[in-house]
Simulated assay, not measured.
Amino acid sequence: MINSTPWFQAAADCRRRGEPWVLATVLSSRGSAPRDSGSKMVIHARHSFDTLGGGQLEFQVIARARELIADGRERQLLEHFPLSARAGQCCGGSVTVLLECFAGAELQLHLFGAGHVARALLPILSPLDWQLHWIDSRAELLSDDMGGRVHCRCLGDPVEHVSQMPSGAFALILTQDHSLDYRLLAALLDRGDCAYLGMIGSRTKALRFRRRLAGESFAPAQIESFHSPVGLPQVRGKRPAEVAISIAAQLLVEKNRLANAVSGKSTGVDWKTLRESLGGISL
């Protein structure tokens, strides 16, 4: 779906929401082409904003951009479109487009439960470049007062959300219902692909849940993979704000640990590649 929102407004909104997106820029045009150099549009998974002139050229740019979004990495790519052949247009010119893919939020956090700790935690996390999802069965508690930074979802059974989470997400179980906590925990462990999984509660509760998981044939590695009681033990206190600070600190520790485990990758387009792709065309 193409939207009339200007590309710069769409880019700002994607950044604010932590969504992955692509900025497509016409670097050069030769001969007859639908738009001049410098024309831009923004593409994300469901919509596109502004235009590069429409037609098959734009259709192919959007398709290529969504391939980059699905790949999940930040990168830059040059694509050359001969309009009379590849794009199925009779303009007779050619266009070189720079596609810049922004992966969106550094990570996704899916927070189950809308109690006091969750409500204290979200304002701490909302300034970070994270995509925050808040799930509960009580719609009246899911108000987002953080400028659209939190994606609220009201479900009669929050366990339904587990199957829709992406691989590598962070998950926090902060509900008021021990039975729901266990069902969420079992579903998340069964997925086996959370980068971090934490559950609020006492050591006694955590031990009881681990024994129950063992009785239901969960592997020892799965049983030991979640954090409970959640939060850094060095940060003491039982008030919601104190617990929230402790949890936020643990999330940052885990996020930095994962970042250090991933080798750095170059995401830029070097000058040699740019020059060869443009084939001597002046910018």
Rank of each mutant, 00 (worst) to 15 (best):
G113C: 02
V117W: 05
V117E: 09
A118I: 07
R119L: 10
R119Y: 00
R119W: 00
R119K: 15
L121H: 09
P123C: 02
I124F: 07
L125Y: 03
D129W: 08
W130E: 02
W130V: 11
W130A: 04
Q131L: 03
W134E: 01
I135V: 13
D136E: 09
S137K: 14
R138K: 11
E140R: 11
E140P: 01
L142I: 06
L142E: 07
D144G: 02
D144C: 05
D144H: 09
D145K: 13
G147W: 08
G148K: 08
G148W: 04
G148F: 04
R149A: 09
V150H: 05
V150C: 01
H151C: 08
H151A: 12
C152R: 15
R153V: 02
C154R: 09
L155D: 05
L155A: 00
V159M: 01
V159C: 06
H161P: 00
S163I: 04
Q164R: 12
Q164K: 12
Q164H: 12
Q164Y: 06
Q164A: 14
M165D: 00
M165F: 00
P166K: 08
P166Y: 06
P166V: 05
S167L: 07
S167F: 01
G168K: 09
G168T: 04
A169N: 11
A169D: 11
A169E: 07
A169Y: 02
F170C: 00
F170A: 04
L172D: 07
L172W: 04
I173R: 03
I173N: 06
L174I: 00
L174R: 03
D177M: 07
D181Q: 03
R183L: 01
R183Q: 06
L184K: 07
L184T: 05
L185Y: 08
L185N: 02
A186C: 08
A187L: 05
A187P: 08
L189K: 03
L189N: 07
L189V: 04
D190P: 00
D190I: 03
R191Y: 01
R191S: 02
D193E: 11
D193R: 10
C194Q: 15
A195Q: 14
Y196C: 01
L197W: 06
L197Q: 03
L197V: 05
G198L: 07
M199Q: 14
M199A: 15
M199E: 04
M199V: 12
M199P: 10
M199L: 15
I200N: 10
S202R: 13
S202H: 10
R203F: 11
R203L: 10
R203A: 14
T204S: 15
K205Q: 12
L207A: 15
R208V: 01
R208Q: 13
F209V: 06
F209T: 12
F209G: 14
F209C: 14
R210N: 11
R210I: 00
R211W: 00
L213W: 10
L213C: 07
A214W: 09
E216L: 09
E216K: 14
E216S: 11
E216G: 00
F218G: 04
A219M: 15
P220K: 04
A221V: 11
Q222K: 13
I223G: 06
E224P: 07
S225V: 02
F226A: 07
P229L: 06
P229R: 09
L232P: 06
L232C: 13
L232N: 11
P233I: 08
P233R: 13
P233L: 07
Q234D: 12
V235P: 05
V235K: 15
R236L: 13
